[in-house]
Amino acid sequence: MSRNDTTQFGPPRPAPAWLGWGALLFFLFTQVYAVVTSPADAMMGHLQKILYVHVPSAWVTFAAFGVVLVASIHFLWKEDERADLLAAASAEVGAMFCGLTLIQGMLWGRPTWGVWWSWDARLTSTLVLFLIFVGYLALRSFVEDPHRRGQWSAAVGILGAINVPIVWMSVRWWRTLHQIQSDPREVAPVFLRGWLLNVAAFSLIAVWFIWKRYEAARYERAAEHAAQAAALGGNNG
């Protein structure tokens, strides 16, 4: 058992329902707003609309993996179980957004490039990132002991995070085709507002998902501790 197990922190602060509903309503609003306010793009026509969901999903994916990295380092350093649970929650949400990013990219790539998939650096490294997330979550589900699970998945999370830019570099050298990544400064203002609003909406949704998942993880861990204490004949059971 770690020095800082979650039993000493009391119950987690619940994710407020208004945040969830607010994020959902805001997301619906930004979708409508972005689609209504943007004219057809000169080159891509209405295909451009995918920018509003694709790029925010990708950003949220990288932010979520960043949280996994920071929380993992914090866990190994301070042995605070809460950091381990936050990393796990963030990895689950990140994997979901990563999968969404890939699917949206394919939907866009088919009419634009004429293929569902191309082996360029950005696509390939996003797919590898997704696989690393999947491996991380698989490791968590295959290890019973909470402390061992925390230590191992933190190590895997940190190495995985180190690997992502390396994969990106190596695939880029190997072959590249993806258009230069979208930069807010190069996007016409008429598209920009809808896009930035969507980034905010996606971030809110991600925060709410992670928070909710973290809360559930805290209760699961509390149940594990109670079961352990009961098995040892302690007075907690």
Binding site: L131, I132, V134, G135, V143, N163
Partner: peptide, 18 residues
């Protein structure tokens, strides 16, 4: 861990791509 046969390739192969 449990499921060691599948876990090692699942963790190792994506890491080995570079």
């Amino acid at each position: 861990s449990r499921a060691r046969e599948v876990l090692l390739p699942l963790l190792l192969y994506p890491m080995l791509i570079p």
